[in-house]
Design a protein around this nucleic acid. Structure first.
Length: 159
DNA sequence: GCCAACGTTGGC
DNA sequence: GCCAACGTTGGC
């Protein structure tokens, strides 16, 4: 099983929106970057992913979701009315892909970008690299563990 | 709203 | 294949 991190702007699609989709989840559409697309193609059902809120008041990891369907063509690329329409993606030869993800949990507190930066065991985490704008990145098992540890301790402190 | 960092596009 | 121009991302 692999681990991932996926970004979304909460004003557009938040973890609460994902929770409302229920156990079958929903498609993660709109990725228009080749590197991010390639990562999605590597995903397998059962993989776990951090849900990251970007471009908002408190950027950071807000919870966990699970991949429930492997990559398949992103139909929003074919729709001229969709904001992510790409005339170069032909239904016969789709350029963009998406996976289905389902809600697993929302953390009691956001693990903020600031907090992530302060954790030395996350120094190599892709999301923390300067200038990184990739919306889908792999996460190592040790990074996953380190973040979950931060979640556990932030929960203790909230008692 | 600003702007640095980065990816993509297209002329040559 | 180079690279300037442009568009987008995302923290601040």
């Amino acid at each position: 099983m692999s681990y991932w991190l996926m970004k979304s702007e909460p004003d557009v699609f938040s973890i609460d929106d994902l929770r409302r989709k229920g156990p079958r989840g929903t498609h993660w559409d709109g990725v228009r970057n080749y590197q991010a697309r390639n990562f999605m193609r590597e995903m397998k059902p059962g993989d776990q992913a951090f849900f990251y809120h970007s471009n908002c008041k408190e950027p950071g990891i807000v919870g966990v979701m699970e991949v429930v369907r492997e990559a398949y063509p992103d139909h929003t690329a074919f729709d001229p009315k969709d904001p992510h329409f790409d005339p170069k993606s032909d239904p016969a030869r789709p350029r963009w892909y998406m996976v289905d993800v389902a809600y697993v949990e929302k953390f009691p507190r956001t693990i903020t970008l600031d907090a992530l930066r302060l954790n030395h065991s996350l120094a190599e985490m892709l999301i923390l690299r300067r200038g990184n704008r990739l919306s889908v990145t792999p996460v190592t098992a040790s990074e996953w563990k380190a973040v979950m540890k931060m979640v556990a301790s932030s929960t203790d402190h909230s008692r």
